[in-house]
Write a protein that binds this DNA or RNA. Structure first.
Lengths: 345, 345
DNA sequence: TTGAAAGCGCTAACAT
DNA sequence: ATGTTAGCGCTTTCAA
């Protein structure tokens, strides 16, 4: 049998209340008594049961973190930020992997509620569950923060990076280097790619550069190892065609890595003959030769920010009425994959 | 106020016992009663409180997972394996990041015990805590499985990959390709590097190849982004010296990536002029050009295996006496960074 | 097939 | 400064 507060009380010859008091250090206890109790605790190797504590206090000091994938390089970075902040506040994290299934996402939320978490943060929430009102409803039940995946008009707490500004900055940088014939590489389906493409098109128009359809490159899967090879092949094909671009904007670093490999394959020099800019600044952007110039999504900060926001909501307990949308700035990280355009169109 | 089982009972006009029975589906309940209760549950949007349940049952269906780092590419893969197995068994994971601090590791264990987890798996446990007997003592208190970090004579449940065999296989492969002048690249301190170096030295001796001290390359930090650049510089220096090796064995894929970058920097062709073999098969091994030949540590399986082993221990409840040591085989993954030696010493 | 009642280990009034 | 006691929300005998 596990030792309980009662065993400790007996051992120290005091009441369980007193033991509780030295445990929580929230009421005056005579020094000598405290010593006795502490000795008993040590002797019995007593560990308080936080289930019982949580049951009464209605506070568990746990939060749930839901991610679409553990192995994606982006999410662990965010989780780290959350853990960094929450850990300091004595919270422990539940981690749930949805494998990008809306169904699993809902199920995990259910389990977390059963476990009486003090709050939930969902990184990259599924569109389906945002649109259906699932998260709006959840917001009324439990402190909730969504990281990225922002949709207009959805009444939830959000924290996100300003991908529009980031795209703008990347494109401006390329243009400042003299590039006019710029390709755009994206994956299918995901909302943030749409946003980026829209901005790409707009900027090209504003600069009076006709957008060639051949310069919009779309691969099926945007966020995995396979993405690298898909991107590589796609870029090779484009580079071999007429009027090859002098630069490429990639919607994330996986794609940009593929672009670097494409150039290497063709003997095209990066950045002298071909400039490549990525997005996210995940760890692989520092692994290539040359190292990738990219837009930093500051994932660690995103995590910290999510945690801070969640803490606010938990403390606030207002539930509704005081929803927040926090937008973090992106940052251009200049490394070695971009240079002045060597030729003009 | 949250709705409780009592509210449901009132709504359905039955006793809480009956509600509990339909919740757990463990005693006969008349169909019509069940319907009533289910309707009440739905109407009140009732979620059972698993703290209360855990308090009674002495079973929480939670397990703690402790990792030295979230962002290391190796650990998330293992965690995914654990989650895959545990998730199917209705478990939820607590995730704890120790930042490689023995002190944090101990503190997290303490918190997990308070939370009454049914078991704990520690991935890459800190040597300090293994040697001090901390984990041996813990084994007597709670179901515990250690992933890697095996030390002889330590009475804990272990699961690990056979790194000795893996090293052997890698070296044999290199030799079969005709390489005799082989370099060895490692980081400091970590036990598994010691094991690998020992084998390297032994094999060289067995093959009557004098081990040149210049061929043992040691960098300070073996397991982070910085490792790539450190390795790159280290390999460049070696390759520029007398009698350069025709192949290199790298203790992990970060180092191997650095080696590839070194070759690229020097204009040395991989694999034609220089063969590189890595270890682990983390995701970056598929990103480089050429793709890395490496030894697969089957991290996902490692995680699954750990989960299965933990489940056994939890069910078994024998606590001691029945400790297990599970060893997984590694696998040589032939990709494109190794080829027949172009010259001999 | 159902219900009453005794806790699980702890906290927090309320006494003393 | 310390102790008594009533629960927190649930499961599980035991009885009906």
């Amino acid at each position: 049998m596990k030792t309980t507060i009662e065993d400790v009380a007996k051992e120290a010859q005091v009441s369980i209340t007193t033991v509780s008091r030295v445990l929580n250090n929230n009421y005056p206890v005579k020094e000598s008594t405290r010593k006795k109790v502490e000795k008993a605790i040590a002797k019995l190797n007593f560990t308080p049961n936080s289930l019982a504590r949580g049951l009464i206090r209605k506070r568990t000091y746990t939060v749930g973190v839901i991610v679409p994938s553990m192995t994606n390089l982006f999410f662990p970075e965010v989780v780290k930020g959350i853990e960094d902040c929450m850990g300091q506040n004595e919270y422990t994290l539940f981690l749930c992997d949805t494998k990008s299934e809306p169904e699993y996402e809902r199920r995990h939320v259910g389990r977390l509620k059963e476990r009486q978490v003090d709050g939930i943060v969902v990184i990259g929430p599924m569109s389906e569950n945002i649109r259906s009102g699932f998260f709006e409803a959840l917001t009324k039940e439990v402190p909730l923060v969504l990281v990225n995946g922002y949709h207009r008009g959805v009444r939830c707490n959000f924290i996100l990076t300003d991908e529009e500004m980031g795209t703008l900055e990347a494109l401006a940088y390329l243009q400042a280097l003299g590039h006019r014939n710029i390709a755009f590489l994206r994956g299918e389906q995901i909302y943030s790619y749409d946003v980026k493409e829209e901005i790409f098109t707009r900027i090209m128009k504003q600069s009076n550069i006709p957008v060639m359809q051949e310069n919009i490159l779309v691969i099926p899967e945007g966020n995995s190892v396979e993405t690298v090879d898909m991107s590589r092949d796609m870029v090779i094909r484009r580079l071999e065609k007429e009027n090859p671009p002098t630069a490429i904007f990639c919607c994330n670093d996986w794609m940009a890595t593929g672009a670097i490999n494409a150039a290497k394959h063709l003997g095209v020099r990066v950045p002298e003959d071909f400039s490549i800019i990525g997005f996210d600044n995940i760890v692989i952007s520092q692994l290539s030769e040359p190292k990738l110039t990219t837009i930093d999504q500051t994932m660690f900060k995103l995590g910290q920010g999510a945690a801070e926001l969640l803490l606010e909501v938990i403390e606030g307990k207002k539930g509704e009425g005081s929803l927040k949308k926090v937008i973090l700035e992106t940052k251009l990280v200049k490394r070695n994959s971009c240079a002045v355009a060597s030729r003009t169109v």
